[in-house]
Amino acid sequence: MRILCLHGYGMNPDAMKHQLSTLRKLCDPSWEFHFLAGRIQCSPAPGVQGIPGPYLCYSTDFDPVSMRAAQALVHEELETQGPFDGVFGFSTGASILAAYLLEQSATHPGKPLPVRFAVFCSAVPIISTDLAYYQAIYGSLSDEEEQIIRAGQYDQLVKLPEPIRTAAKTVAHVTDILKPMLRKSRLHYLDRPPLEIPCPLHPDLYKARLNIPTLHTRGKKEPPALKESSLVMESFCIPSLRRTFEHSAGHGIPTSRGEIEDMLAAMEEMAGSDRRAARL
């Protein structure tokens, strides 16, 4: 079993290896975890300062150009280091993997995805790189609407029409929550030309789905906007193939042995059912 892993913002492969250390000790020894490093240096995420740097991410601005580069990095790793049975992403790593797999599903309908299962932990919003989707959300803003977004004030964002309102509010809420990690305010992401603003995918507007087994984990103590991001990601997955696991911590991977064992059991069940399907 080979699993491609993507770390979160301000981390690196060593930090994610530390996150997964207990799970890796408990899992089948034949499981191989392959860690993909981000290419952009950034400030460290809270709690990882004890792990030697550099601290890395896959994008700092979450605009379509940098997010396409992040997806290209995933694609190259799958092509050159694969095959992989599954993927495992944490936080921004989870959203990048989901965006890549959804784009593969959208552009190659009917073709099997390059992996057979996915684990998404504490996912943040899935940011689109699809220009047509960007145009549908932000492409026809009036001057007044553009100014409201650029100002980034919640009492004005709620006055925007849908689906612009949900997209802009999601960016504002999540970047506010993640400001201690990103070290940038919501205006860094909103005060831009419309087609450079991060554009979260929404399942009502983007029809691609992940037709593979998926496991979604989130912490009970995560802020509501991040819990909502996880729920939105679940909506892109087939209900009969997805599993959800909620642990007692916050934005992170389970730390208690009992919860790690429960999470691992869900992973084993998912991977096992997938192997049985592959033999049919």
Rank of each mutant, 00 (worst) to 15 (best):
I126Y: 03
D63Y: 04
T129Y: 02
S66N: 13
V48H: 00
G50T: 02
L131N: 08
G110H: 08
F90K: 01
R116H: 09
G152V: 00
T22Q: 14
S43C: 13
G152W: 00
G53F: 02
K159V: 12
G86F: 00
G82S: 12
L131P: 08
F62R: 04
F120M: 03
S66A: 13
V115R: 03
H34I: 15
Q135W: 08
K111Y: 12
Q41W: 10
S128F: 09
S128C: 10
P52T: 03
P64M: 04
G82V: 10
G38C: 13
S142I: 04
C57Q: 03
V65K: 11
I149N: 03
F90G: 01
S66I: 09
Q71S: 06
L131I: 10
E145W: 07
D61H: 13
E32H: 14
L101C: 09
V74K: 01
C121D: 07
A151S: 14
L102C: 09
A45E: 00
K159P: 09
T80N: 11
C42Y: 05
R24S: 14
I51T: 11
A118L: 09
Y134P: 01
D63K: 06
V65G: 07
R116W: 13
M67G: 06
L131D: 14
D61A: 15
W31C: 08
K111V: 15
Q19N: 15
G86I: 00
P161F: 03
Y154N: 12
A123I: 04
E32K: 09
S91F: 03
Y100V: 09
K25H: 15
L160Y: 04
S95G: 11
D143I: 13
V119N: 00
P125V: 02
D63R: 08
I126C: 06
P161Q: 04
T60A: 10
E32Q: 15
L56E: 04
Q49N: 09
A37S: 14
T80Y: 07
F117P: 02
A37L: 01
S142A: 05
E76G: 12
E144A: 09
W31F: 13
I126F: 06
Y58M: 11
D155C: 12
G47N: 00
R150T: 02
F35K: 08
A132K: 11
L131S: 12
E103I: 03
S140N: 14
K25C: 15
L102P: 11
E79I: 06
H18I: 08
R68Y: 08
P52Y: 09
T92M: 02
I149P: 00
S128D: 05
Y154D: 12
A118I: 04
Q41C: 13
G93M: 01
G82W: 08
D28S: 13
T22C: 08
I96R: 02
L78E: 08
F90M: 06
V158M: 06
F120V: 07
Q153E: 15
